[in-house]
């Protein structure tokens, strides 16, 4: 017997709807729980003061700054490198064995668990290059970790720029580089920015690889060679070692809200870019 196609259609539609609501619902529940548990301990002074007694009291100012420094440095290192690779792969070379190998390498990098990056960073940057547990070791490790994301998203974004725009630019007397900078990259900017946002998210949320390479000092890192702590690491240590669940949730709240804020800011910037180039 054949099932009524209208019935199956409706069933599938409701089922897919349900799945979508479930996903969003999950996000709302997580944010809600963190908000409820964290809001009582979260205040401006919590964000602007130094921790006391391992974080049992006081605020998380150094962890906030540590997070900002680490994310900013990794992005500053990884964006030129990743974008450069993507531009090379899409604009400056034909598909060949070499590009296949580079792509395979990038894919493989993306699949490696973060703890392995941490271990590598520890052995190579911390020990071998003698950088110690430092902001620099952490940032370089994060750079390698987020590189695949930036390369892949940038490459997809650049590939999506219509070939005709390049042709027009060349026909107007532009060199390849001028075409890339003036036409291709502005059109690809929203996609590239998405990759950078995802990468910031990864760097900000990472714990294992950061503890191994940046350490977990509670002081405010004053130079590239100082150890420090990110909010995620702070949260992990507070919760893991039973120091203070209240402070842990308050930290988590600041973390989640700042990621949200970064995303909103990025969308705003992105729309400005799109408005200028369309």
């Amino acid at each position: 017997m054949r099932v009524n196609p209208r019935f199956t259609d409706a069933l599938v539609r409701h089922f897919l709807n349900l799945q979508a609501y479930f996903t969003v619902g999950l996000l709302v529940v997580i944010v809600f729980i963190i908000f409820i548990k964290g809001i009582s301990n979260c205040s401006l002074s919590f964000m602007l003061t130094y921790p006391e007694d391992m974080g049992r009291h006081g605020g998380i100012f150094p962890a906030i700054m540590g997070t900002v420094f680490l994310a900013a440095l990794s992005i500053v290192f990884a964006t030129p490198l990743g974008l450069g690779t993507a531009i090379y792969l899409t604009e400056y070379t034909r598909e060949s064995r070499l590009t296949t190998i580079i792509r395979f390498g990038v894919e493989s990098l993306a699949g490696i668990p973060s703890i392995i990056y941490g271990l590598f960073g520890f052995i190579f940057f911390v020990i071998k290059l003698g950088m110690g547990w430092s902001l620099l070791s952490g940032a370089l490790t994060m750079t390698i970790m987020i590189l695949p994301t930036i390369i892949r998203t940038s490459e997809e974004a650049i590939k999506a720029v219509p070939r005709n725009l390049r042709i027009v630019s060349h026909s107007l007397g532009a060199t390849k580089w001028e075409t890339t900078v003036k036409v291709v990259l502005p059109s690809a900017a929203p996609g590239i920015l998405t990759g950078i946002m995802l990468s910031i998210g990864r760097a900000v949320g990472e714990t294992a690889a950061v503890i191994f390479t940046m350490g977990s000092s509670l002081r405010l890192p004053a130079s590239l060679m100082d150890s420090g702590r990110t909010m995620a690491v702070h949260f992990y240590i507070l919760a893991r070692e039973g120091i203070s669940m209240e402070k842990a949730y308050a930290t988590a709240l600041v973390l989640v809200v700042s990621i949200l804020a970064i995303n909103i800011l990025a969308y705003y910037t992105m729309n400005r870019v799109i408005a200028k180039y369309s």
């Binding site: 005709n164 725009l165 042709i167 027009v168 630019s169 026909s171 107007l172 007397g173 036409v183």
Partner: peptide, 28 residues
Amino acid sequence: VGLRRRVGTVFAVPLPLPRSIFENIAYG
């Protein structure tokens, strides 16, 4: 590149660059 500045081309399909009228013309 110098040749293409001496030899201008208009293609079959109108292909404006995704920017303003002014910036399209100022591009070259």
